[in-house]
C-alpha cells in the first residue's frame, strides 16, 4: 500500500532479533513435562508476559494459553506490517491476509450460528491487513449481507458478493468460505510474474509451495475419505505440482497420488521420509508436520542465502506459527492426558 521506499534492512534486523527470542527445542522438552498452569507460568516468564497478565483474570488453564498465544501472534505480525514499507510490505501482506480470511470466516460462522459478538471477538487473530476498525465493525453487524457490505473495497468483496447468491439458494456456508480462500490464494501469486533467480524467485517459489501443499493436502484428504466431491472445485491455481486434470485423475488413486508427489523434482527429495511414512502408515498428520518442517527448514536456509530480502521475515513468520501450534498442542495434549511420547509426535521440531 505504501509508496515509499522499501526498507528490508530495518525489518530484517528487528525480525532476526525476535526470531532468537522464540522458544528453542530445549524449551519444548521442558514444556512437555508441565501441566497447563505451569506452561502458562513458563510463558509469563518469557515472551508472553503481557498477554498472560492481561487475560489472566478472565481465562484460566488451556484457554488462557490459547488466547495468549493468539494475541501474541497478532501483536508480532501487526508489528511486521507496521515496520515494513514499499515492496517488503506488499510481500508480507500477501501472506498475512490469510488471517483476514480466518477472521472473516469466523465472523460469518459466528453470525450463522447466532454466537454473541464478544465470543466471536476472542476467537479472532487480528494479524491480517484489515484494520482493527473494520474488524470491530464486522463484529457489530448482524447479517452476512452486512458483513459483505462492510468489506466493500477490499479484495474479498467481489468474490463474496457473487458467492452470496449461491449461499442464499443452498443455505450452506461452503460457497462463501470457498470464495474467501480462492480470493486469498489467487491474490497470493497475482501479479508477481515468474522471476527466475534471486530472492524474488525464491519468494514466488515459497508461495507456490504453499499452494502446492494446500492442493496436496486437499487431494490426500479426498483420496483418503473417498468422499464423492469434484476435486476440481477445490483446486487452486498457481502451483507447479499438479494441474487441474492431473489432480482430478489422481484423487481416485491414493498410491498414484503419493508417487506423483515423490517424483516431483522440487519436493520429492525434501519430503522423502514423510512420504515413506505416508505410504506405510496412514498418518496424514505426520505428513503435514513433515511438510511444515520442510518449509521451515527451507525458509531458514534461504534467509542465510539472501540476508537482505523478505526471506528472513518468512522464516520468522513460519517459526512463530510453529511455536504457537506447538505450545497449543502441548497444552491440549496435557489437558486430555496424552503421554509425553504421544505429544512429542504432535510437535513440529526440526
Amino acid at each position: 500500500m505504501s509508496s515509499s521506499a522499501s526498507n528490508p534492512e530495518y525489518v530484517n534486523a528487528r525480525v532476526r532479533s525476535r526470531r532468537n527470542a522464540l522458544f528453542s527445542d530445549e524449551d519444548y522438552r521442558k514444556l512437555i513435562r508441565m501441566g497447563p498452569s505451569e506452561i502458562a507460568r513458563f510463558m509469563e516468564e518469557h515472551e508472553y508476559e503481557e498477554e498472560i497478565n492481561r487475560l489472566g483474570a478472565r481465562f484460566s488453564g488451556v484457554d488462557l494459553i490459547e488466547y495468549s498465544l493468539n494475541r501474541n501472534l497478532a501483536k508480532h505480525f501487526d508489528d511486521l506490517l507496521e515496520w515494513a514499507d514499499g515492496r517488503v510490505y506488499d510481500q508480507i501482506a500477501r501472506y498475512l491476509r490469510k488471517f483476514d480470511v480466518w477472521n472473516v470466516k469466523t465472523i460469518i460462522r459466528g453470525i450463522y450460528t447466532d454466537t454473541p459478538s464478544e465470543e466471536i471477538g476472542t476467537d479472532l487473530i487480528r494479524a491480517g491487513e484489515l484494520p482493527d476498525r473494520t474488524v470491530d465493525r464486522l463484529l457489530e453487524v448482524e447479517t452476512i449481507e452486512d458483513v459483505i457490505e462492510v468489506l466493500e473495497g477490499t479484495l474479498f468483496y467481489e468474490p463474496l458478493d457473487s458467492a452470496y447468491e449461491h449461499y442464499e439458494e443452498t443455505g450452506a456456508l461452503v460457497p462463501l468460505e470457498n470464495a474467501l480462500d480462492r480470493a486469498f490464494y489467487e491474490n497470493l501469486l497475482g501479479d508477481l510474474g515468474r522471476p527466475t533467480e534471486g530472492p524474488e524467485a525464491m519468494y514466488v517459489e515459497f508461495l507456490q509451495a504453499e499452494i502446492d501443499f494446500r492442493n496436496a493436502r486437499n487431494a490426500l484428504r479426498l483420496a483418503r475419505s473417498g468422499a464423492d466431491l469434484d476435486p476440481a472445485e477445490f483446486y487452486i491455481e498457481g502451483g507447479v505440482l499438479f494441474d487441474r486434470s492431473e489432480l482430478s485423475r489422481l484423487v481416485s488413486d491414493y498410491d498414484a497420488l503419493v508417487d506423483h508427489i515423490a517424483d516431483d523434482p522440487r519436493y520429492g527429495d525434501r519430503l522423502d521420509a514423510a512420504l515413506a511414512r505416508l505410504r506405510e502408515a496412514d498418518s496424514l498428520i505426520a505428513f503435514e508436520h513433515a511438510v511444515d518442517a520442510a518449509l521451515l527448514e527451507y525458509s531458514d536456509r534461504l534467509s542465510s542465502v539472501y540476508p537482505v530480502s523478505v526471506s528472513a521475515v518468512f522464516s520468522y513468520i513460519l517459526a512463530k506459527e510453529r511455536e504457537v501450534e506447538n505450545i497449543r498442542a502441548i497444552a491440549r495434549g496435557r489437558e486430555v492426558g496424552l503421554s509425553e511420547e504421544e505429544i512429542e509426535e504432535e510437535l513440529v521440531i526440526l
Binding site: 534492512e9 530495518y10 525489518v11 530484517n12 534486523a13 528487528r14 532479533s17 532468537n20
Partner: peptide, 15 residues
C-alpha cells in the same frame, strides 16, 4: 544507509 537502518532496527529490539 543500509547499515544505519539495520542498526536502528536492532537497537529498537535491544539486541
Amino acid at each position: 544507509r543500509g547499515i544505519g537502518a539495520a542498526v536502528v532496527g536492532a537497537l529498537a529490539e535491544d539486541s
